[in-house]
Amino acid sequence: MGELLGVFAAIMFGTSHFFNGVLSRRIPAMSVAVYSQAGGAMFFLGWALSIFWTQGELEPMGDQDFGWAVLSGIGAGIGVAALYEGMRKHSISLVVPVTSIVSVAVPFILSITVLGEPLQLHTAAAGVMLLPVIWLLSRPSKQTSHPNASVRESRRDLFAVSYGLIAGAGYATQLFALSQITSSTPAEPLLTGQLVSLLPLLTLAWLRNSTLQPKKATLQAATVGLAAALAMAFYLYATRHALLGPVMIAIALYPAIPVLLALLVLKERLSRAQALGLGVAAIVVPIVSLAN
């Protein structure tokens, strides 16, 4: 059950990142990040209010859950800002896989070294298969023959990887912190983290004099933020029904979603490497869905 929820979370994460990545090419990435997180906050606020209306009260949030929620929000704010800015300036097929590797690898390692979770055979096999999947999905579909192209592309790739590393570190912090929240009805901690994530984003927007005036595209970003919030809820409940390690392997499959959507929505063509990566990903999914 937990691994399956992790797969659902990966689908929602990948979908939200793709559409917000497309929006970040039409409007400032900071606006996309802010309105996306605000949309997610509205989702969690509605969830909390629905619990209050049906039960008459919310479960009090303990100090530990509050601390983990704040930490998750800080990580999310950094991750969202770096990811959308990276997707705006560089190739989505490079920034997203690097982000995925870092954001999954860190919590996965912590689940073994800090939480003491056992490393199961099917989890280890899926993790080994996952690395070539992410690498294959990041391969470009076309090659250029311009004599100076390789130098320019190398520089662009270096900056793209840098954005991916920063975004991955932010998301790794968020995902690990969320996995430590223990409230039986986590709407309040999730709402707290979502609101905290807006603080670094609004600070960056202020420092860069970015305009945040509502437009049609920003409202679309807020709508996409609902999908990202739903992904977080799926992920949190996944960590309660399975070990963190297998759930992180499932989450790491989300780079396949932007590639598929680029094929279906943007009519991009897959390279042979990307097609092979999708094929291997189709094998990894049932492996991570095995019961513990």
Rank of each mutant, 00 (worst) to 15 (best):
D63Y: 09
V259R: 08
P286L: 00
G62K: 06
S138R: 13
G279Q: 06
L244N: 08
Q274T: 08
I283G: 08
L119K: 09
T185D: 03
S183V: 00
A160D: 03
S210T: 07
E59L: 07
W135S: 02
L266E: 14
A177G: 14
F13N: 06
M12L: 13
P186E: 15
F43R: 05
R155P: 01
G225L: 12
G62M: 05
D63M: 10
I27N: 04
Q120W: 07
L253M: 12
V95S: 10
L191M: 14
P97H: 07
V34C: 10
A252W: 05
I181K: 06
H122D: 00
T218P: 00
Q180V: 04
Q220H: 04
G6Y: 12
R240M: 04
L58R: 01
S154I: 00
A76Q: 01
F43W: 12
Y84K: 09
A273S: 10
L195W: 03
P132N: 06
G21I: 14
K142A: 06
A29V: 04
I251T: 12
R152L: 01
A275T: 09
F18V: 00
P97F: 13
W206Q: 07
G40S: 06
D157E: 14
F159V: 12
K215H: 02
T54E: 11
V70W: 07
S289M: 15
V96R: 14
G40K: 05
P60Q: 08
G79K: 09
V285R: 02
G62T: 11
Y163F: 12
L4V: 15
S289P: 06
S50N: 08
R139E: 08
S50A: 11
A273E: 12
A242Q: 14
I134A: 11
L276A: 13
Q174M: 03
A48E: 03
R208P: 11
A177S: 15
G245H: 15
K267F: 04
L204I: 13
A125H: 06
L45N: 01
V224E: 06
G21V: 14
T192G: 00
G56K: 09
A262N: 13
K215W: 02
E3Q: 01
L23S: 10
E117T: 10
L119N: 02
A69N: 07
P246M: 08
A125N: 07
L204Y: 08
A76Y: 08
N20F: 02
S50Y: 05
M30P: 10
E153K: 03
S16C: 13
F8Q: 03
L178V: 10
W68T: 03
K215M: 02
V265H: 10
R156K: 00
V22P: 01
R26P: 04
A172T: 01
A69M: 11
G14C: 04
V247Q: 11
A205G: 15
F8W: 04
Y237M: 03
V22G: 03
P246F: 10
P286G: 00
I166D: 02
P140K: 09
Q143L: 13
H122I: 09
G164R: 09
L191F: 02
H122L: 14
A256Y: 05
A48Q: 02
L264M: 05
L195Q: 09
A169V: 15
G14Q: 12
